[in-house]
C-alpha cells in the first residue's frame, strides 16, 4: 500500500489535559487522499477534535494526551510542523476569531498568509484577486474585515485558507452563518476543487451527499461509520441520531430503489432510481 497517497489514522485516542474522558476513542482510518470527506455527527461527538487532530492543532498548539498514529500523504504534524502546516488550509468554527486582528482591509487579510510565506508582491496581488473572485468577495476587498457580515466573514475565512493553495483543506462547519444562496454557491465551488483532500464538518447533509466522496459519522468520540454517502446513509443506526438526506426520505416514501436494494441519497441517484422503477 502506498503510504504517500493515503490518510492513515491508527488506534487514535485523544484526551484534553485535565479532562476525565477521551474526546476521540480508537479511531482507525485508511483511505486514499484527494477525496472530499464529509464529517457528520451531533454536538460533542468529537468532530471538532478530529478536525484539530487532522490539522495538527492537537498536539502542536493545544496540548492533549494523544496515542496512536496519524499520517496524511506520508506526512505527520509531529515530524516537520512547518512543512505540514504549509500544506494545510484550515477554517475554524469561529470565523471572526480566524481573522488576523491586524489587517486594514479584506485584501490585507488575504495577503497575510502569502506574506508569511515570503511570496512576492505581484504573485500576492494576483492570488488575492483570484481567490476573492472565487469566494465572491471582489467588491469587499477595500473594506475593513470587521465590517463584513457573518456569511461574508466565513467566506473570507475560507479564502484565507485556500489562498496558499494547500493540498489538504480542513473546514469545521464553514457555512454555519451563510444564507441559503451563499451555502449553495459554496458547495458548488467545492465540486470545482481539484487535487486537494478536503475534510468538511457540516450538518448540511443534503449538500454533503451531493459533493462528498466519503462520509464519516462520529458518535461519542468514536468513528462509527465510514464509506460512500449512499452506503453510509443506507445503514444508519438510530443510536447516532443522524437524519437521512431529503432525497433518501423522498425515495423511501416513493419506494424508488437503486440496484442492490438501496435508496438514493443525491439528486443524480434519485433520477437513476426513478428511471429504474418506472
Amino acid at each position: 500500500m502506498d503510504e504517500d497517497k493515503r490518510i492513515v489514522l491508527e488506534n487514535l485516542n485523544v484526551r484534553y489535559s485535565g479532562m476525565e474522558t477521551s474526546q476521540l476513542k480508537n479511531i482507525n482510518i485508511n483511505t486514499p487522499i484527494g477525496q472530499i470527506i464529509g464529517i457528520v455527527g451531533n454536538s460533542h461527538s468529537g468532530k471538532s477534535t478530529l478536525c484539530r487532530v487532522l490539522a495538527g492543532i492537537i498536539p502542536k498548539i493545544i496540548s492533549a494526551t494523544i496515542s496512536g498514529t496519524y499520517t496524511i500523504a506520508g506526512r505527520s504534524p509531529m515530524d516537520d510542523w512547518t512543512a505540514f502546516n504549509t500544506s494545510t488550509g484550515v477554517v475554524l468554527q469561529n470565523p471572526a476569531g480566524q481573522l488576523s486582528g491586524l489587517a486594514d482591509t479584506v485584501a490585507d487579510e488575504l495577503a497575510f498568509d502569502l506574506i508569511n510565506q515570503g511570496t512576492s508582491a505581484d504573485v500576492i496581488s494576483k492570488r488575492v484577486a483570484n481567490v476573492a473572485a472565487q469566494m465572491g468577495l471582489t467588491d469587499q476587498l477595500r473594506q475593513k474585515p470587521e465590517s463584513l457580515s457573518g456569511g461574508q466573514m466565513q467566506r473570507l475565512a475560507i479564502a484565507t485558507a485556500i489562498i496558499t493553495q494547500p493540498q489538504i483543506l480542513i473546514m469545521d462547519d464553514p457555512t454555519s452563518e451563510m444564507d441559503p444562496v451563499g451555502r449553495q454557491q459554496f458547495f458548488h465551488w467545492l465540486t470545482t476543487v481539484k487535487d486537494t483532500t478536503v475534510f468538511i464538518v457540516s450538518s448540511e447533509i443534503d449538500d454533503l451527499c451531493e459533493v462528498a466522496d466519503s462520509i464519516w459519522i462520529m458518535s461519542e468520540g468514536e468513528l462509527v461509520s465510514q464509506g460512500s454517502p449512499q452506503d453510509v446513509f443506507n445503514h444508519l443506526s438510530p443510536e447516532w441520531q443522524i437524519p437521512t438526506p431529503t432525497v433518501y426520505q423522498m425515495a423511501e416514501k416513493m419506494n424508488w430503489r437503486l440496484t442492490g436494494d438501496v435508496f438514493p441519497v443525491a439528486a443524480e441517484e434519485l433520477k437513476e432510481a426513478f428511471d429504474a422503477t418506472n
Binding site: G97, Q117, A121
Partner: peptide, 25 residues
C-alpha cells in the same frame, strides 16, 4: 478571551512566525 484563543491558533496555522515572512513595502 475565547476569541484570542481562536486567534492564537489561527495565527499559528497561518504561519505568522514563518521565518520567510517578508513585510510588503
Amino acid at each position: 478571551l475565547d476569541q484570542s484563543m481562536t486567534r492564537s491558533i489561527s495565527l499559528q496555522l497561518r504561519g505568522f512566525d514563518n521565518p520567510k515572512r517578508k513585510a510588503l513595502k
